[in-house]
């Protein structure tokens, strides 16, 4: 019951916060940028516009996950609301878990809302070129949106963990952003350094050992980017399970750590 109450309050706070307006601003910006991007394409304006729109959706959910941790968790700490809330018969874990679940649901709602302009772009942004390659509406579209949401869930979980550890206001946001970029990049970077003939030898020698160590600490968020099946109907189906299971397990580890640290910090206090 307390968990459900915290979840409900988080949803209401999130929907009323200024960050929610960001969802609509980002949606409009995304539509405009993606539609313009289609004009650069000679043969596939629909695919290019959709591709850029999907990239925009990734960025939108990334920034929303960071901003909602700031708005719904960090500000509670700054304004000492956490102390007031814990004066009630509410476990610290219920508070944190409720906030996390609420942010996760807000991200899911945002993904669903922003998926609408992505779908519209995939249908209409052909710039008058009737022979454009087509995207594939259907299950691949839904899987793609789910993958983007899962990616934002991992970033949210990591940022919440950093929130429980940090003592400065913007540290979770900064480290969460760096984590997101690293987690989305490392797999492509390792593949390039290991298998490309163009990779500079110095870069390979210096960075490959670091990246190989990094892969054990940071999940591969590029495995959750399932847009290929939507953009290129004849492409091989992405590994939905291979991408989502490690991501969900990693979320579980992060949230468990966050709950333990949060509980320990409030017991100390």
């Amino acid at each position: 019951m307390p968990l459900f109450l915290t979840l409900r309050f988080t949803l209401l706070l999130g929907l009323r916060s200024r960050a929610t307006w960001l969802v609509f601003v980002l949606g409009v910006g995304m539509v405009v940028a993606a539609a313009l991007a289609g004009a650069f394409s000679a043969r596939q304006p629909l695919v290019v516009a959709s591709d850029v729109a999907i990239s925009g959706l990734h960025f939108a959910l990334l920034f929303l996950s960071l901003i909602w941790v700031q708005e719904l968790l960090q500000k509670d700490r700054e304004r000492k609301h956490v102390i007031w809330m814990l004066a009630y018969p509410l476990q610290p874990s219920d508070y944190l878990l409720g906030r996390w679940l609420g942010c996760a649901l807000l991200l899911l709602l945002s993904a669903a809302l922003l998926a609408l302009p992505v779908a519209a772009i995939g249908r209409y942004a052909n710039w008058g070129y009737a022979a454009s390659s087509q995207v594939y509406f259907g299950w691949p579209f839904l899987w793609m949106i789910l993958g983007i949401w899962l990616e934002s869930l991992v970033i949210l979980s990591f940022t919440v963990l950093i929130f429980t550890l940090s003592r400065t206001p913007f540290l979770p946001l900064a480290i969460g952003l760096m984590f997101a970029i690293a987690a989305k990049s490392w797999n492509t970077a390792i593949t390039y350094l290991m298998f490309s003939n163009d990779a500079p030898q110095a870069l390979r020698e210096h960075n490959l050992p670091i990246l190989k160590m990094l892969k054990w600490l940071i999940p591969d968020l590029s495995a959750l980017d399932w847009r290929a099946a939507y953009l290129y109907p004849d492409a091989a189906a992405p590994g939905y399970l291979a991408g989502s299971i490690p991501a969900l397990l990693y979320c579980g580890i992060l949230v468990t750590l966050a709950l333990v640290i949060h509980h320990w910090r409030h017991q100390e206090a």
Partner: peptide
């Protein structure tokens, strides 16, 4: 390539 990856946020 690695620089381009970072500049596009890993996308």
């Amino acid at each position: 390539v690695p620089v381009q990856l970072v500049m596009t946020g890993g996308d």
